[in-house]
Structures are given as structure tokens and as C-alpha cells.
Design a protein around this nucleic acid. Sequence first.
DNA 1: CTGTATACTTACTTACTAGTAGGTTAATAT
DNA 2: ATATTAACCTACTAGTAAGTAAGTATACAG
Lengths: 192, 192
Amino acid sequence: MNQATDTKARIIERASELMMQRGFNGFSYSDISSPLGVKNAAVHYHFPSKHDLLRALVEDQHENLRRKTSKFMVYGGSAREQLEGLFGFTIHQCKAGRPVCIVGALAADYDELPDDVQQANARFMEDSRQWLTRVLELGREQGEFNFTGKPAAKAISILATIQGGRQLYRVFGERYLQDLFKQIRRELGIET
Amino acid sequence: MNQATDTKARIIERASELMMQRGFNGFSYSDISSPLGVKNAAVHYHFPSKHDLLRALVEDQHENLRRKTSKFMVYGGSAREQLEGLFGFTIHQCKAGRPVCIVGALAADYDELPDDVQQANARFMEDSRQWLTRVLELGREQGEFNFTGKPAAKAISILATIQGGRQLYRVFGERYLQDLFKQIRRELGIET
DNA sequence: CTGTATACTTACTTACTAGTAGGTTAATAT
DNA sequence: ATATTAACCTACTAGTAAGTAAGTATACAG
């Protein structure tokens, strides 16, 4: 990995952090460049406009999710373990100072975003939904989960709950988030 | 209502709209003053700093919620109807261009907020939770609702789901939000 | 008629924003 | 040795942000 790639990666990492902490309008190029020991122009070099940067962030997160979910799948394979992987991932992100995921961070600014960023975001969410839907189908088939309604509807419901839970985390800390996970388990008929 | 009070109220109304559409960092004093036909300084006159304005917004929303919930309670009284009132309120807010509620809008900027605004926000959420907890208790006692776990935990779960649902609304429109409501009803054992 | 308070406006400052033009350095290719 | 390219930096622009100081119009009290 040469120096250029490194700087670019560090820009994405830092910007990603800022984005999730403060949203698109909550940080500036200086907030990225200063802690990295580079100048604003370096950021502009890699990402000419802020929207270019944003696009890279969404794609990076999407890629990140793909890696994580494939890790869940390799990890155990059982639906229960995959679901717990999602819970663990959420808690981990929150504790790493990223209580708002990229989707949530973008939500506030959604209407101002260029089309391709909106679409990338929508794909990101659709992928998450499809992944969880398959997990729920699997869990129901194997008798691990017990719930009413279609897996797809249940998947949306769980994702929305977690999404909302991240906001609760900001205000009330981990307690409520863990309560949410318990409630989700309970409503999937999982013994705890 | 004199002119002063009117301008102040209009500032709050407009700011509230902007806040819910774009978040705290997503709008400026000009975005408030221009459409109102006044100058930035007029906004500063009523709310010296942006944080003063924010404080007023949170309190206004809190008051608004109190009025709405008391309306739900008067409206029918049955737990089911109160819950539907919450669903209707959410849909109405989304359609009125306010897909992110004040809590969600603040979430992105939460850590930078002054203490009293954070506390006002926390009180707002606690009040919502208590209200819904009582609705769930009532519904269970009267045999309208059927769910597992404590009412308080279920209340948090539902509020988080709705919170997350508002973000889905931004990206996918009303469909998913209605699906969420259906899923919530289903899991409360309500016939639809 | 005068004094005072309210509700502003005009005109300004300071600080920061995204973005750019052009120069510099170091590595690599020919 | 020379040319080229990537990856920056320095120094800047134009625009916008929140915030302020001082002045003005109106209403109302005494």
C-alpha cells in the first residue's frame, strides 16, 4: 500500500467517523485534514467535491456491510448466530462513537443529495433487508425463530427498530439498546 | 396576539420545519428569515443564539406532543385508538415534510448540544415512552393487546421502530412505514 | 408632550465554508 | 538524463455562517 492509497483510506475512515457522528453538514474539510496532518487540498485532490466524498463513504459502508455479513455467515451459519452478529455489530459501532449509521446520518440531508448517492443508499438498505430476510427465513425453517407475518416484513421491522435504537443509544446509552435486543429476541421466540 | 408574538411563533414554526427536514446544521438564519419577510437580526432578537432557538424548538415539540397525546386520550380512550393516533400522527408528520422528528434531527448533533437541550430532549423521549407504556398496559388489561414482555420494554421497542421507520420513509416513501405499522399491530395481536 | 419599552432594521464584523490555481517533490518510465 | 505522473502544499477566492452595535418606528404610560 503506497502513501497515496493510505491517505485516501485515512480520509475515508476519518470522514466516515465524522459523518456518523455529526451528519453531512456537521463537519468540514478541516475536520478531516487537520487530524490527518494534511491540508484541505489533499482531501480535494482525492475527492474533488464533498458529494464525491459522500459517494465514497456510502460505497465504503456498503462494502463494509458485505464483509461483515459474510463474516456472520461463515462464523456460525445458524440464524440465531447471524442475528447476534448483527446485534454485536450494532453495539460495536455505537461504542466506537458511531451511534448513527450512514443511513441515519444521511436521512437528515436526504433530499439535498445527488441522485446516485440516494440510490447507493437505497441499495445499501435493500441489501440489508434482503440479508436479514434470508436469515429470518432460515431461522423459521430450522425452527429457531418463531414469529408472525412475512419474513420480509419482520426484517424491515427489526432493521427499523435497530435504526431507532441507535438514536436511543445517543441519548440514554447502552441500556435501552440491550432492552431492544431482548425484546426482539423475545418476539422471535428465542429462549434467553 | 400582537405582531411580536406572531413573528416569534412564525420563527419557531419555520425553524421547526427546517430542523426536521435538514437537522441543526442543515439550515441557517437566512433560511428562517427570508420566507418570513424579516431580517436575520429579527431572529437573533427573539433567539440570541442558535442554541436558544434549538431549546425553544425542543420545548415547543414537547408541548406539541403533550397536546396531541391528550387529544388521543380524549378522542376515543381505547388503547387501540390511541395507538392508531400515534401512527396517524407519524404519517401526518412525514407527509408534512417532517420525516425526521425533533429527536431524530438532534441525534446527529447530540454530542455538541448544550446540556439543557440534551436534557429537554431526554425528557421528551421519556414522556413519550411513559405515555406509550400506559397505553400498552391499558390495552393488555382490557384484552385489546396481546404481547410478551414488559409494557415498558415493548413501548421502547415500538418507539424505536417508528423512529427508524421515519428514516425509511425518506428513502422508500410510505409503503414501508405502513408495513411497519402492520407488523406492530400483528405483534400486538390486533386483528386487521 | 415626553419618556420608555418592544420589536424590529441597517449595516457591519469575524470566522469559517467549499473549492481552485499553480507550484513542489519524489518516484517511475523511457 | 529527461519526461511524466501522482500526490501533495501554498495561497488564494467567493460565498455564507452566526452574531452584534446602533439606529428607527410604534405603542403606550404618565
